[in-house]
Design a protein around this nucleic acid. Structure first.
Length: 258
DNA sequence: GACGATGTTGGCAC
DNA sequence: GGTGCCAACATCGT
């Protein structure tokens, strides 16, 4: 569920509440959530001071005085302050002044100590980086390349469809065959899109809520994603849905020609 | 009730 | 390097 705008919304709420706080206790209710590490968070976290809260792509990074705690929300992960535990609560952090709970219905999310996996990611989609040149190195369909977090980090299925719609590029276009100008335009339109979505506190399709349980508002502004059969806002042709890179893909067959 | 789809990623086979 | 399939899991719509 959560892509860059949703994760950024959460990070902006976490940062002022977590910065400078000390972890007093940690509980892991479902071991599967903690991955790629032999560290037992229940032993490792207590006493740690939170220096800052950062984001890279869809990953939330808690910078601690003793290392890093990396959180990925997967499809249905949620972080909530002072919330009651549910059957889907997978971990709980007790802080010196509050508690932070990690809920995850489908458990595609993860929490890990260390920062290693971030090294595999491409530049954050909003970072100062001309990442459109990276798109041109791949011969896969442009939509698959946008979804590849090693190429550029933060774009998921919703924003890939929305970005390609704005740029009027067919999702199946071979990335390497885009002109440099079109790739550059795609990057700029993607940045605009992500920033607008952040202004609306992200998109809520079903599960996504922020740390206070509020839904986002950007789903009302989607022009392609979830609009199958509805008229294109530019030309009124019905939006089509097909499958590409094993993901539902929405586009205007008239505006986005191959 | 069964079936298929859902915003994510990682691993593996080819 | 790219593709396709599967796995993790629960819910919801048809």
């Amino acid at each position: 569920m959560p892509e860059l705008p949703e994760v950024e919304t959460i990070v902006r709420e976490l940062r002022p509440r977590l910065k400078g706080r000390r972890v007093t206790a940690a509980d892991v209710l479902h071991a599967r959530i903690v991955r790629h590490s032999d560290i037992d968070l229940r032993d490792w976290l207590p006493g740690a001071r939170i220096i800052d809260v950062l984001r890279h792509g869809k990953f939330i990074l808690l910078q601690l005085d003793k290392g890093w705690l990396t959180v990925h929300l997967g499809m249905t992960g949620q972080l909530r302050f002072e919330a009651p535990e549910t059957v889907y609560t997978r971990a709980v952090l007790q802080l010196d002044d509050s508690s932070l709970l990690y809920d995850d219905i489908r458990m595609f999310g993860s929490i890990e100590a260390g920062r290693k996996r971030i090294d595999q990611l491409g530049p954050d989609a909003l970072a100062r980086d001309e990442w459109h040149v990276r798109l041109l190195r791949h011969k896969a369909p442009i939509k698959a390349v946008l979804l590849n977090q090693r190429v550029v980090a933060g774009i998921g299925n919703i924003y890939a469809d929305e970005a390609l719609f704005r740029a009027a590029i067919h999702p199946a276009t071979v990335a390497r065959r885009l002109s440099k100008a079109r790739a550059n335009k795609l990057e700029q339109l993607t940045r605009d899109l992500l920033n607008e979505a952040i202004d609306f506190r992200g998109s809520s399709i079903s599960d996504y809520v922020d740390t206070e349980g509020r839904r986002g508002g950007f789903q009302e502004r989607h022009q392609a994603y979830g609009r199958e059969g509805k008229p294109c806002v530019r030309c009124a042709s019905p939006i089509e849905k097909s499958f590409l890179a094993q993901r539902g893909t929405h586009f205007c067959p008239n505006c986005q020609r191959r």
